[in-house]
Each structure stands twice: as structure tokens, then as C-alpha cells.
């Protein structure tokens, strides 16, 4: 199987603090890979390195066979930052049309993306007047436009009601089935089970990189939250 993203010995420092301590991992193409870990563990930094906006100390990040952040990748990438990065003083539709125009696409693609995230009814509302969950879906819609090969979503399901959350995850798997690679971060462990593959991060180190089934088997529990805890304890015992 091909890898959409290959990270090797990635070290990132922010100020005097080392945020990522030499992470290596692969993100397989056409799958939903979950990036799980507590807040402050380095998830967003790893995501920023993958989309090519993070200054890295050492190591390499290859995306679709090219160094992360190189110009041709900008047409292949959809990126949703943690805070909904859409214009609050534009309507949902105006936002989507602008992001479509950046890719040389028209209103049809923009409107389709809005429908895909279930915001068709709210498309003429100003983003600033939407609820938090709607706002992050508006941000997601702008990333879906133009069928990017790699979708990088930083906590896209925060604040969504359970039904919508299920819809979004179903949509992520449809996209993956169509060949899109998704990297989705979350700090909610109950979402881990929905991923094809998991990367578990803690304090800037990768402590798990496997399918959910394999992680359950290795730690001897069906509960992924508990599995995460057991992995941490095992590592702490080794260290001690």
C-alpha cells in the first residue's frame, strides 16, 4: 500500500521547548488516520508540519511524494485549522465561493461542498452568526472543495451534536473509499474507534501507531481510552 504522508525523525522546537521529539510515522493513502492525544501533546504541531506551515528543527515530511509545503501540493491539500478559519463577516456561501475561486473552481463546487456538510439551509447566513458547530462545518466545507487528495482536519468534530458527528464520520469514510487520504485529529477517545488507523501522541512522542483492533489486542482491552492508558503505563514502567 502507498503512503500519502511519510514522516521521518521529525523534531520541532517552539521557543526553547521541544514539542515533537523525533516522530516517524506513515499515513496510508485512502484511509482515515486518527491523530489522538491529550491537548498539548503536539497534535496540531504535527498537523502543521504535514501541511507545510511549521518551521521544523530536523527530520523530513514527505506528502504525496513531495516535501511538505511545496507549491504543487497546494492544489492537492484541504486543511481545516482547529479554530474555524473562515471569514466571520462573510456568508457561508461567500466563504465557500472564495475558497473555490482560489482553486480555479466555480459556484457549483462551492455549493456542493456546503450541501455535503449539511449547511445548505444556512448558506446565506453570516458565519459570525452561526453556532460553533455550524461554523466549524463551514470551515470544513471550504476544505472539501475541489476533491483534495489529502484532507487534514484538526479537531473537526468538536461541538457537533452526536447525529451530525456520525454523519461527518460517515462522510470521511465515503471520501476515503473514493481515494482521499484523511488525517483527523481528536482528543476524544470515543472517536478513535471510527478510524482505520491510529497515531497516539503524548508529550511530543508517538506511543502507538496501529489499527484500532491491533491496539486493543496489544493492550488487552476493548476500550480504547483504557488501551491508551495502559500503553502509557507500560512506557512509564519501561522508563522506570
Amino acid at each position: 500500500m502507498d503512503n500519502a504522508v511519510e514522516v521521518r525523525d521529525l523534531v520541532v522546537e517552539r521557543g526553547k521547548r521541544t514539542v515533537l521529539h523525533g516522530i516517524s510515522c506513515d499515513i496510508p493513502a485512502g484511509q482515515v488516520t486518527g491523530l489522538l492525544g491529550p491537548s498539548g501533546s503536539g497534535k496540531t504541531t504535527l498537523i502543521r508540519a504535514v501541511v507545510g506551515v511549521q518551521i521544523v528543527r530536523s527530520g523530513t515530511v514527505m506528502v504525496l511524494g513531495r516535501p511538505a509545503g511545496s507549491a504543487p501540493l497546494r492544489r492537492e491539500l484541504g486543511y481545516v485549522t482547529q479554530a474555524p478559519s473562515v471569514y466571520a463577516d462573510l456568508s457561508v456561501r461567500e466563504n465557500a465561493r472564495y475558497f473555490a475561486a482560489l482553486r480555479g473552481l466555480g459556484a457549483t463546487e462551492a455549493d456542493r461542498a456546503i450541501t455535503d456538510v449539511g449547511l445548505a439551509q444556512a448558506c446565506n447566513q453570516l458565519v459570525g452568526n452561526l453556532s460553533g458547530g455550524q461554523r466549524s462545518r463551514a470551515s470544513l466545507a471550504c476544505a472539501l472543495i475541489g476533491h483534495p487528495k489529502l484532507l487534514v482536519l484538526d479537531e473537526p468534530t468538536v461541538g457537533q451534536d452526536p447525529v451530525l458527528r456520525a454523519d461527518l464520520w460517515a462522510r470521511f469514510h465515503e471520501l476515503a473509499a473514493g481515494g482521499t487520504t484523511l488525517l483527523v485529529s481528536s482528543h476524544v477517545m470515543d472517536e478513535a474507534g471510527r478510524c482505520d488507523r491510529l497515531l497516539l501522541v503524548r508529550e511530543g512522542r508517538l506511543i502507538g501507531d496501529d489499527t484500532p483492533a491491533a491496539i486493543r489486542a496489544r493492550s488487552g482491552t476493548d476500550d480504547l481510552e483504557e488501551a491508551f492508558l495502559r500503553l502509557i503505563r507500560q512506557l512509564d514502567e519501561v522508563a522506570a
Binding site: R74, R75, T81, A83, V86, Y87, C142
Partner: peptide
């Protein structure tokens, strides 16, 4: 500050 700049810089803009 709202992150739109970071996002724009990952697009062909």
C-alpha cells in the same frame, strides 16, 4: 489571528 492567513498560505494563493 483567526487562522485564515495560515489556511490561505496552504492554497494556491
Amino acid at each position: 489571528t483567526t487562522g485564515t492567513l495560515e489556511r490561505l498560505l496552504t492554497t494556491p494563493l
